[in-house]
Simulated scan of single mutants.
Amino acid sequence: LFSVAKVGALAALVLFGLTLFRQPDVASANFSTFWGTGDWTIAIVPIIGAAMVGSLFSSDAWNNVTFAAAEVQNPSRNLPLALAVGTGLVSLLYVLTNVAYLNLLPFYGDPSGADALARGIQHASQDRVGTAAIEVALGAGAATLMAVAILFSTFGCNNGLILSGPRVYWAMARDRLFFERAGRLHPEYRTPVFGLVAQAVWASVLCISGTYGQLLDYVVFAALVFYFLTALALFRLRRLRPDLPRPVKAFGYPVLPALYMLAVGALMVILLFEKPLYTWPGLLIVASGIPVYLLWRRGANRNSSSA
């Protein structure tokens, strides 16, 4: 239900922006100066990198389906298919939605403009470009429709994140790398109750610890660290465990994974310098897990030896 509502809302916005309510003059002005009028220099790179935080966060849950790999039928086929189709569909919708924005709203506007069209993308009320776009298409009253669509999107996102996260704790506990209670399932519902409760408590602490933007910077940087390490693990496992079954081959290996690591590494360096107040603490929090992991693994090995 949530997925259908989210996709339907975005598809409707794309339809409105590209066909029914397209503003020809606005679109012409936006796309004729799409790349700006100034000279592009290397100085623009860190600015673009810092601006990527929001867009990266909006796509960050692309890999969460893998958290439930143990519960997926024929995972060697269905997981890669789900990742490819899901990521491709979301990317297409996001690109088309932004194109729709540029067909409905002028990029530049007046901060004191009387309506959404006058304020444009640059000065959209509370930076809510989607709401401004739907107002141009359907009138000011349509902002309520966008609010409802955002609520559906939020609930859908929460639904996936809340249910997928504890499955990681469950798997860690099964490998004796986390609290033993996290590896227990509810006797009736077969859900990782301890992980769900622990996650809810920690999420609540985070919610009251800073603003949305601050948490965004923490989360995105930490996610980039693990994406980098995941790609690095691909090279390491190919070298150390060439005998492992690999039903799915990494497309473009080794060039594409190497380029991916280069891009992610560059972005992390940019964020460390552009947003140090949040990225450095995020890095320290992630790094603090290394000694904890080593201690837990030592305990697991000791228990295995004594058994």
Rank of each mutant, 00 (worst) to 15 (best):
A29R: 09
F57Q: 06
V248A: 06
T41H: 04
T37D: 14
T279Y: 11
N158V: 13
D175F: 01
A173T: 04
R239L: 15
V7M: 08
A116Y: 06
I121N: 10
N64C: 15
I208A: 12
Y253F: 11
A173R: 06
A100M: 00
Y94R: 02
F235W: 01
T211R: 13
A68P: 08
F21N: 06
I44T: 15
L138G: 15
Y108H: 15
L89F: 11
L102G: 00
N301T: 09
Q214Y: 13
I162S: 06
P106K: 00
L163G: 00
A147S: 15
A143D: 14
S306H: 10
A258V: 00
V286L: 01
F221C: 12
L10Q: 09
L229N: 00
S209R: 09
N303G: 14
Q126R: 05
L256Y: 08
A68K: 03
V205P: 07
P24C: 00
G282I: 04
L237V: 08
L104E: 02
A287W: 09
L93E: 11
L93Q: 04
S58Y: 04
N63W: 12
D115N: 13
P242I: 10
T19G: 08
T154D: 15
T211Q: 04
V201C: 07
G86I: 06
W62Q: 06
D60G: 14
N158Q: 02
F179Q: 15
A29Q: 03
Q199K: 06
Q126K: 05
G120L: 11
Y227G: 12
P80D: 12
S125K: 02
G165H: 04
